[in-house]
């Protein structure tokens, strides 16, 4: 089932600290080579933990972006 929420990451802002990955309760995010990336977009419950914990303003969670 597709999630109602869309997580977007600005690679230019992300420094790969991994905090977002650690606070996501649904393992939506994972650390790529040196940046965070969305791994399981369909699992997002829109709790905003990642956006609120991100020290770099790199993460945005929006509602209703992922319709397909």
């Amino acid at each position: 089932m597709a999630s109602k929420f869309q997580v977007s990451i600005l690679p230019k802002y992300c420094k790969g600290c991994g905090i977002c990955v650690s606070v996501c309760p649904k393992q939506v995010l994972a650390l790529g080579k040196d940046k965070a990336q969305v791994e399981h977009a369909d699992q997002c419950i829109g709790c905003l933990n990642c956006e609120y914990h991100c020290p770099d303003f790199a993460l945005t969670v929006t509602e209703g972006g992922n319709d397909e």
Partner: peptide
């Protein structure tokens, strides 16, 4: 001015 100058994982951005 972004991204900011703080180190990866620094709490100041939070």
């Amino acid at each position: 001015k972004m991204p900011h100058i703080w180190c990866p994982g620094c709490g100041h951005g939070m």
